[in-house]
Nucleic acid binder design. Sequence first.
DNA 1: ATCACTCGTGGGAGCGCTCCCACAGTACCT
DNA 2: AGGTACTGTGGGAGCGCTCCCACGAGTGAT
Lengths: 351, 351
Amino acid sequence: MASHGARGRSGGRPTLEEVAARAGVGRGTVSRVINGSPRVSDATRAAVEAAVAELGYVPNTAARALAANRTDAIALVVPEPETRFFSEPYFSDILKGVGAELSDTEMQLLLIFAGGDRERRRLAQYLAAHRVDGVLLVSVHADDPLPDLLAQLDIPAVISGPRSAAETLPSVDSDNYGGARQAVEHLLSRGRRRVAHITGRLDVYGAQRRIEGYRDALSDAGHEADEALIEPGDFTEEGGSRAMAALLERRPDLDAVFAASDVTAAGARQALREAGRRIPDDVALVGYDDSAIARHMEPPLTSVRQPIEVMGRRMIDLLLTEVADRRPLASRGLDRRQVVLATELVPRSSS
Amino acid sequence: MASHGARGRSGGRPTLEEVAARAGVGRGTVSRVINGSPRVSDATRAAVEAAVAELGYVPNTAARALAANRTDAIALVVPEPETRFFSEPYFSDILKGVGAELSDTEMQLLLIFAGGDRERRRLAQYLAAHRVDGVLLVSVHADDPLPDLLAQLDIPAVISGPRSAAETLPSVDSDNYGGARQAVEHLLSRGRRRVAHITGRLDVYGAQRRIEGYRDALSDAGHEADEALIEPGDFTEEGGSRAMAALLERRPDLDAVFAASDVTAAGARQALREAGRRIPDDVALVGYDDSAIARHMEPPLTSVRQPIEVMGRRMIDLLLTEVADRRPLASRGLDRRQVVLATELVPRSSS
DNA sequence: ATCACTCGTGGGAGCGCTCCCACAGTACCT
DNA sequence: AGGTACTGTGGGAGCGCTCCCACGAGTGAT
């Protein structure tokens, strides 16, 4: 039996109505089946499902979005230029976790780069149009206006690293403080005594926490504070190299370095080489992230591993909860949803 | 003066209708202004624009998509697992070009990975729902069913490398044939006489074209064909290494190698090293892609550069044309839209 | 038997747009 | 004067869904 023929402009993609007619039920019932409502008898459900299969029915997303006022899409917003996104393994791991967690869902993921000013404006416009039900924010700096914009637009958001101790947004982070402690305690346990620290960008809260972990590990072990052993970096290789050179000049007697990232450590290694210091004989080196760089460095780099993929998964969990909770007028902010995941030290021959 | 108050569920996002009331015009007129129709008087346009600004009006995408039967979104489909996407600079360059070209547009880009079986099914569902107006296909193998699916669904698509000489889809490619010729001619001009070729995957049309370019460059220079100098690779490092070893065994007197990719060349270099051959003294080596690998190899690798970012841009051009052309019942396939871009040899010390 | 539920179901209303037809106004020809 | 052609404009219809109210049938307490 032929189908009723094309009346729509796109040449007859079946509609809810057609499925209903075919199954001999009403529109509402088909909608219920499609959306998995339990208030449908088994017989009816079977009939509808058969009709859906026969007609090859696929719901029209736009109509659904319009009627239900939701999009079934969330965005992963990366406030960095594409280049960094591709060069840092962090992002690809987050994406892997996010993708895995989302694959059981009807939700669709959008990837949005907002590195430049122009892209920022586009993003603002995009969000104002409410084209996504929620937003995942990674790598946000302390003074970024994006979270405020999202709050103002009342769009659920989850942030990957809290911007401060007073973060109000739901967040997922690894234990930066604990990870730094692990690194420093490891160095101390290997008999190192003058442990320097090349920090991350100081406007990143996680970098602050690593500094605190570094300080506390030293003082708990009875070492007096020595600010000359701390040099600011910026998570880049050049920054690491520059900072290392500065440290060597200031404290030539240092015997260990804890770098705030593997990339930073790679830069530090370069500067150490140029200064004729051997790793780990003269100076032990520990990085952070346990990225591919750490494994391929010469010598292989001891590093603090963060469960990045898991972080991606947890971010999705939080966000989906947040999105689902937008039914009642429930008060928010009372139960902070801040997830902190444990880190793990991966010892290699650089220390 | 207060706005009329929230009647919608989402707390009063302004609608077209409200803008019309505010500007003292009809709904149709506002729609015309929003969509840039020329059939509006300047005075009216100004009034509408003022109302839009005052109300902070942003069009509702879902409503527009439903009414106009378009989505203003296109997808970049990568039939590979995320991992390869991130590890190969090819993709990030394509993405850069695509993003740049799209930034003047209202079009939104979706990035879809379809590496596994499961993802493939999700993608099929996604496309069946017509959630995008067009698709960009990169890295498609000869036997991939995706292009057929797209044709069947009548979704405009552009492919990054044609699947064969008879490719029906609009495509953008670099001049694989010419690039290979450049590489071989370069080697011959340096006095090399026994030039070998490690091919790419033979089910990739571009790899075939490179073989042809290699053959023709040699025969045009008066060299007789020697099939023993051709060894299949697969674009991977291991494949390159294996192929090089095979070549050395078969034709130990070879004095140059043209590898179908930089990664392949890296593998070949490894095998040459192990066999005690010096580069370029004993054997000259040329790669393809001019990727970061080429610049960082020891010695730096002569390579054929493809204008990948430009390719991304041109793909968007083609696709947007294709999408726009879906008004008349015009016959397709008559004017093939196949773009081929020139390559450039970048000489370095490996040859 | 009656009332009070609950369950499964049908279908009206409406989401915010675009498309298109109708119409008033002006201009330029016969 | 009437015709014809355009230009700018208003607003009805309809895109394909979800939401929700109404309704009949079944169930159990009264």
